Amino acid sequence: MAPTFYHDDPKWSNIKPIPQNDTARPLAAIAYTDEYSEAMSYLRAVMAKNEYSHRVLGLTDHIISMNPAHYTIWLYRFKVLSELHADLREEIAWLNVTALKHLKNYQIWHHRQTVIDKLGSPEGEADFIATMLQQDTKNYHVWSYRQFLVQRFGLFDDEGELKWTEGMIEEDVRNNSAWNHRYFLVFGGKGEQTADKAIVERELNYAKAAIKKAPQNQSSWNYLRGVVRRNKLPTSTLKDFALEFADIEKPDDVTSSYALDTLADIYTEYQSKREEAKKALDLLATRYDPVRAHYWNYRKRLLE
Rank of each mutant, 00 (worst) to 15 (best):
P3F: 00
F5K: 09
Y6G: 01
Y6R: 08
H7I: 07
S13D: 14
N14C: 02
N14I: 04
K16A: 12
P17W: 12
P17F: 09
I18T: 13
N21A: 14
T23V: 11
A24C: 04
R25H: 15
R25I: 13
A28D: 13
A28G: 04
A29L: 15
I30Y: 12
T33C: 03
T33Q: 06
E35V: 14
S37A: 15
S41C: 09
Y42Q: 02
R44N: 10
R44G: 07
R44F: 02
N50A: 07
Y52K: 01
H54L: 07
R55C: 11
V56E: 04
L57I: 15
T60K: 01
T60N: 08
T60S: 05
M66H: 13
A69F: 08
H70L: 09
L75E: 13
L75K: 04
Y76N: 03
F78V: 12
K79G: 05
S82L: 01
L84V: 13
L88F: 14
E91T: 12
I92E: 13
W94N: 08
T98L: 04
A99H: 09
L103Y: 06
Y106K: 07
W109T: 14
H111W: 11
Q113K: 15
D117Y: 12
D117Q: 15
G120S: 07
S121H: 11
P122D: 10
A130D: 14
D136I: 06
T137Y: 01
K138I: 07
N139Q: 12
Y140M: 00
H141T: 11
H141Q: 15
V142P: 02
W143T: 08
L149E: 11
L149F: 08
Q151C: 05
R152K: 12
L155Y: 09
D157T: 08
E161Y: 04
L162V: 14
W164T: 10
E171A: 11
D172K: 04
D172C: 04
R174T: 12
N176G: 07
W179T: 08
Y183L: 01
L185K: 00
F187C: 05
G188V: 03
G189C: 02
K190Q: 15
K197N: 12
K197A: 12
A198P: 10
I199C: 04
V200T: 06
E201N: 03
A209C: 02
A209S: 13
A210V: 08
K212E: 14
A214L: 07
P215M: 00
N217E: 11
S219L: 00
W221F: 02
G226E: 09
V227I: 12
N231H: 02
L238V: 13
D240C: 00
A242G: 07
E244P: 02
E244H: 01
F245C: 02
F245S: 05
A246H: 05
P251C: 11
P251E: 06
V254I: 15
S257A: 10
L260N: 02
L260Q: 05
L263S: 05
A264D: 05
D265W: 02
D265Y: 01
I266C: 00
Y267V: 06
T268P: 03
Y270R: 10
E276A: 10
A277N: 02
K278Y: 03
A280G: 03
L281H: 03
D282P: 03
R287Y: 13
Y288V: 00
P290K: 03
A293E: 09
Y298D: 12
R299S: 09
E304K: 13
